[in-house]
Design a protein around this nucleic acid. Structure first.
Length: 252
DNA sequence: GTTGAGCGTT
């Protein structure tokens, strides 16, 4: 049972979730398991990863069975160097349901320990966490997210492009984020390339009526369209000669 | 292949 996160939450009756931050992007649950398991009974370890890339987000959730062990792990593993980086261990503030929890404790479904493990909650430790946390937050709040998003967008863009180039410009246009000018120029350049063959014709902005009838392009594919074929036999017998010389037909 | 404050799934 070293593969955590693979399966859903095993049992969250009265477990304490620890949030491990500042871990390397290559650190996996298996790597944290022995570390945390050494200080207590780890029930489950989950590392959020990107759905698209699948890369770790840089933090993990370690679920302990007992708060005392969890706290101990926090004090012991907090600031520990893992994989060449100092990890930060602290009680999870929010639960899996995006619900603010008291202190690492997940949902208070447990009956009543009756003070069996009633121990000094020791809120004074919190000061330390807050100090550390505060300092981190003071530095910068939203910064890495941009970088991550940038990469994410890049990857996505690449994929989109690989799949289809036509929607590429559309996607960029829709986004239009600060690159309006560039987009405009690029778009024009591209448009020109297409309109190059006949810029005069396309020049007419009004020259794009929806045409009550199907578009010319469709006519080209009429062969695939079963509708014209069905209606054809009636108006157009096997013979090429059209008994009813209609202008429309003639045009076609 | 890249990044570095934060809070979570089969």
């Amino acid at each position: 049972m070293s593969h955590f996160g693979r399966t859903g939450p095993p049992d969250i009756r009265d477990t304490y979730s620890l949030l491990v931050l500042n871990i390397t992007f290559r650190t996996t649950a298996d790597d944290l398991f022995p570390l945390f398991d050494k200080y207590g009974k780890v029930v489950d370890i989950f590392i959020p990863r990107d759905r698209r890339t699948g890369d770790s987000r840089g933090f993990a959730f370690v679920r302990y069975k007992y708060a005392e062990e969890a706290q101990k792990a926090v004090e012991r593993l907090d600031g520990r160097n893992v994989d060449g980086r100092d990890i930060m261990v602290q009680f999870a503030k929010y639960g899996p349901n995006a619900e603010p929890i008291k202190k690492g404790r997940v949902i208070e479904t447990s009956p009543k320990p009756k003070g069996s493990r009633s121990r000094s909650p020791g809120p004074r430790r919190r000061d330390d966490y807050r100090d550390r946390d505060h300092r981190r937050r003071s530095r910068s709040r939203s910064r890495g997210r941009h970088s991550r998003d940038r990469y994410r967008e890049k990857e996505r863009d690449s994929r989109h492009r690989s799949r289809s180039r036509s929607i590429s410009p559309d996607y960029h246009r829709g986004r239009g984020r600060g690159r309006g000018r560039y987009e405009s120029e690029r778009r024009r350049s591209r448009s020109r390339s297409f309109d190059s063959p006949s810029p005069r014709k396309s020049s007419s902005p009004r020259r794009t009526p929806p045409s009550r009838d199907a578009s010319p392009a469709k006519r080209n594919h009429e062969e695939q369209s079963p509708i014209p074929q069905n209606a054809s036999p009636l108006r157009r017998p096997a013979n090429s000669q059209s008994p009813s010389p209609h202008k429309s037909d003639a045009e076609d």
